[in-house]
Design a binder for these strands. Structure first.
Lengths: 156, 156
DNA sequence: CTACCTGCAAACTCTTTGCAAGCAG
DNA sequence: CTGCTTGCAAAGAGTTTGCAGGTAG
């Protein structure tokens, strides 16, 4: 059966992977949902539309996308992986994360990113040279307590 | 039996925890070993000296130390936790990590840290104000390929 | 047609928990 | 003594894998 592949399917093919309903759906979900989805969360959204697709496919797809650099794998310390479309593939602009250690809420911020970009690029270049390393990604996360958790703690 | 508690034991007591052989040993190991140890690695070193101490104790101790801020819990994407003594409690200076996505090797670097400190402090203050967040830690990691893995890849 | 892809179930790995016994303070 | 700590075994959670059947190209 000939499948009609959308933009995501075509990208996958460019990378030498097949365009399948599951893979396309997962990518669509990543594009239209809020960020930082865990495999289980992606799976639950997948099931709404295509109940026949399994959790295993989500895991396998996410690994492919991560290897291709199409998604970024985050770890916010809640014991499960979380993914978001990489800058190059999403409409969202470059941002970093503010993570509440208590409730695990994630706040995206892109204040200072222009500053950061210049600064990080400088560091990356220097580190690459000094340590003979090919850098292709960075993670910057600030951990702390969000306003809600702060208030709750004061009450105790 | 009266126990003779070392510097680490005293610190634990200051925090309201008991000084036990297991806890002291784990802290000594953290101080004298290379960084970024996983629970299993710590356990293996513990066993060399005190085979009666169990892995569970390592996990429980690391959680305490993490909550107290005495250690930093790292996640380098190899599916297990890794710990290092926090800056305040170790002799090592502030540093960040360069992580090879392929072999998971970690390179500590402290080039630019002075620059970074000033810059990060500025960002932290601004983020705290704007997002009403109490920041108490940050993670900065660069991911890429180390020289060895780069060479290996070229051969393929 | 063929190699890649999939769902299912089982396996695996790391981490956490319940419990009775042990020990620090 | 008393309540925090511990080791063990078992449970839990997230992720990976083997395999037989399915499908994209």
């Amino acid at each position: 059966m000939k499948r009609h592949c959308g933009i995501w399917g075509h990208r996958l093919r460019n990378y030498g992977f097949k365009c399948t309903p599951g893979r396309e759906l997962i990518l669509e979900i990543l594009e239209t949902s809020e960020e930082h989805l865990s495999p289980e969360e992606i799976y639950s959204k997948v099931k709404d539309e295509h109940p026949e697709i399994g959790l295993t496919t989500v895991y396998r797809t996410m690994e492919i996308l991560n290897n291709l650099g199409m998604v970024i794998k985050l770890d916010i310390g809640d014991g499960r992986a979380r993914y978001e479309l990489s800058e190059d593939h999403s409409k969202k602009s470059h941002h970093h994360h503010l993570i509440c250690s208590t409730c695990k809420k994630i706040i995206d911020y892109n204040d200072f990113v222009e500053d950061e970009k210049v600064y990080l690029l400088k560091i990356e270049k220097a580190l690459e040279k000094r340590h003979n390393f090919k850098i292709n990604n960075h993670v910057i996360q600030f951990y702390g307590k969000c306003s809600t958790c702060n208030k709750n703690e004061e009450k105790i």
